[in-house]
Amino acid sequence: MNLLYRAKRGLLYATVALFCFFSASPFLWMIITTFKQDRDLYRSKNNPFLFNDPPTLDNLRVLFFETKYTTFLWNSFFVGVVVVIITLAIAIPAAYSLTRMSGRWGEQAGIAIFLVYLVPPTLLFIPFFRVISKIGLVDSIWSLVLVYPTISVPFCTWLLMGFFKSIPIDLEEAAMVDGYSRLMAFVKVVMPLSVSGIIAVIVFTFTLTLHEFIYALTFISSSAHRTLSVGVPIELVRGDVFYWQSLMAAAVIVAIPVGIVYDFFLDHLVAGLTMGAVKG
């Protein structure tokens, strides 16, 4: 019995270890590649996970001193934070009023709003470009700040509606009888109970701005205003030459901190996305 139990546990841990390695190996590969010399990287007989020649820091030097990588980092971070704030400011009140105040129409409107999310950017970037050029924001990161919420707001509104619907209306009414206005009842009771949803919105929106490519490529033309998703490939793919080591470094430097931050919120995040899925 004991033996069987141990065997089962052993198998379980072995499986987990396998999946951990499977998920981590791309990052490991990227990190190793970052420090490889050209000769080591391009010889196909070399093991890609080992240093056959001594490691070098030269690729990082190229990334930081021969490209505008730090500017891209800042631009992406700035756009991400501003878009998250805009999305929260619009999606929270929209979702709340759609769930609580408009009866049966709320649900229909919620679905209609969600459908907007399904219209692909490839279809929209040309008309959006006309709009952006009319208001004079071409080649400015503010064009991205303006356009990204068109993707994030519909999805996040729909996501949050599922959350607000799951909070019993009794709780808000109790707070209102207890001496609070509807707004304060919302802040003190509904918001703390939908933390998971709000975190899911933040993560979704920030990730979206980080990897969005088409708008960032078409609206921005000078490298000083580019974000990571466009700036890095443009600067590090010169003609048909790929600066693989620097490209890997650029990706892994962003991916790891973001991954660590998301991991802190993982439980909330899973609750957030699944709850929205079930109740939405």
Binding site: P168, D170, L171, E173, A174, A175, V177, D178, V189
Partner: peptide, 10 residues
């Protein structure tokens, strides 16, 4: 003051 059927405890 009101006590709800569900008690509505926060």
């Amino acid at each position: 003051a009101m006590v709800f059927q569900s008690y509505a405890l926060y």
